[in-house]
Nucleic acid binder design. Structure first.
Lengths: 322, 322
DNA sequence: GTAATAGTGTCTTTCAGACAGTATGAC
DNA sequence: GTCATACTGTCTGAAAGACACTATTAC
């Protein structure tokens, strides 16, 4: 047993919704220089090593690193997943130590102050472009992903059936509908099919350098996919959205945030009826003046909804026609 | 940064439903002798250290340890949570190293073969007796827990409101209904209120030794609570139950397993209608002979349900009257 | 007036909750 | 026959999906 060659990394997927898109806070070279080998310095999630002597809990360690690297004080934080596959970090090949990373999801409000020098908000759908269906079915799917997946399915006669089955479930290629929550399934399928660059980066041979979506350091895109899957699932039964909104908001604003996260357009009237009938929000009595048309009433989250309802989340009445 | 003083532990909450109760596989002294200090050897979850040189992934490491300690070959496994609070393992106080443990949930079938010498199935509700409402509201709640919680709420005037709010949500003390999924909330509240023995064991001072429910090593009861919460939530939207059942089963058997896990009685006719109308199961054409009354049709899980439905789980039509 | 967004009302269908009643075995 | 369990049918009310319509602002 060799305890000496384990490192624990703490990674934060920090999300906000700004300008109609879900964004993730990224850091670049400079902050990474101490921990990453010089040759690899793409966009990365904020991260730092867990230091047992300094950090009383894992989450406190994460908050400290994020504060230090981005100047951001986190509010809502939850643990996502712990990643420990061999060679998920190229440093392992160099010095033989194993890096196990604990991924966290954090949600912050649009205008949370942070240091612009080291950190930057990036649209989540730059990394996962096939996940945004708000303007209809992404052309990328039919133009690139499906043909490539088909090729991958056919390339291995023994696994053909199983691969087709997985693709069918994840990407709704046959009868089933697009399931907004299967973000991780889809990413993993694309990874296995070699359709994202990091799949080839991790392999010893660099077969081809093409790939779909913007790349992330190490397995950070997988962490982002894990985070988005979690948010999309949890939004329905926990009041997560309100961590991303100002204390008061219009119903349209609320809807737009939910749409940005879920990646689908929602039916306006039914959405409004759901959140108000559920008594998830209540009017503040004030009016929003900045809107273009008729001024909208301002709402706020009803904290009592948590006690009253066992699953206090927003419904997702998907709009069928564009 | 001191990498040398981190250990990663792998813990398995292995569940099965036998004899009408959800059970967890436990190990005792002997297997633990190498890793636990001699003075503490109560019931424990199977666990072992993650060994970077031996284990390609965390999950494979876990499977290996479980196989070695209990003789059980795991099927369905999912990661639960990573626990890293300071002093969650008393060994930390002794040698100064930090133990971070990754908890896993595994589901196995009733008759899965294992070594009886080292391992033993224990009713989950021995550890969490307030969670079993199948025979009505547990008397323990009114007789012991509520009075003790009330005392705890009142003992700190500043936190009084917040504590009362939390207790109200977790234990449904006021208007809200009992929420079967808030297993972890309830355990954590009891822990903070000092009503489970490990709360006092962890503290430096041993104020009192009373506690509700059977005790577990270290923070293993917390892990069990995490696991039960996960199962109860997930059973509604993923076909988890079938990991615990034989390939074919009667609808009553299915209902009993779901009831054991969820800890509530279900409405028979409505339950049957839900699973059959959802096309989650299908008849095999065979008949169960061992039943007492009219022979029941045998069913099997319809794998296609996963592709057809986005949330393929069993509904929980809670029976109101006993 | 138009454009744009806010908000109300209602019809229809689906489905969960509740309950009544019938069927088929062992004894 | 009784007891026990399996299975079928139906009434009701809540809520979601879909759509039509009115309201209030800026210009």
């Amino acid at each position: 047993m060799a305890a000496s060659d384990i490192n624990i990394g703490l990674n934060a997927v920090i999300m906000a919704v700004t300008g109609g898109a879900p964004r993730v806070l990224t850091v670049h070279k400079g902050v990474l220089s101490e921990y990453a080998p010089t040759e690899i310095r793409p966009t990365a999630l904020p991260f730092g090593p867990f230091e047992p002597n300094r950090h009383r809990t894992l989450e406190l360690g994460l908050r400290e690193w994020v504060k230090e690297q981005t100047g951001l004080s986190l509010g809502y934080v939850e643990q996502l997943y712990t990643f420990g596959d061999r060679n998920r970090d190229p440093r392992e090949r160099a010095d033989g130590s194993r890096v196990v990373s604990i991924g966290y999801l954090a949600l912050v409000r649009e205008n949370s102050p942070f240091r612009t020098k080291d950190a930057e908000w990036v649209n989540c759908y730059d990394f996962l472009p096939w996940e945004d269906w708000r303007k209809g079915r992404p052309p990328l799917l039919d133009q690139f992903i499906f043909p490539a997946l088909e090729k991958w399915i056919m390339s291995e006669p023994v696994e053909q059936t199983q691969r087709a089955e997985r693709a069918s479930i994840a990407f709704a290629t046959t009868d089933s509908r697009w399931d907004i929550e299967r973000v991780l399934d889809r990413y993993e399928l694309l990874y296995e099919a070699g359709l994202v660059v990091e799949a080839n980066r991790d392999a010893v041979l660099k077969k081809n350098e093409v790939g779909v979506g913007r790349s992330f350091a190490l397995d950070h895109r997988r962490m982002l996919a894990t985070a988005l899957a979690r948010v999309r699932g949890k939004i329905k039964y926990r009041p997560l959205v309100f961590e991303l909104l100002a204390p008061t908001f219009t119903l349209l604003k609320l809807q737009n945030v939910v749409e940005a996260l879920s990646g689908v357009g929602l039916h306006k009237q039914n959405f409004r009826r759901l959140v108000t009938n559920n008594r998830l929000v209540e009017q503040t009595g004030n009016i929003d003046t900045k809107s273009r048309g008729r001024p909208a009433a301002l709402f706020q989250f009803r904290r009592d909804a948590v006690r009253e309802r066992s699953q206090p989340g927003v419904g997702l009445p998907v709009r069928q026609s564009p």
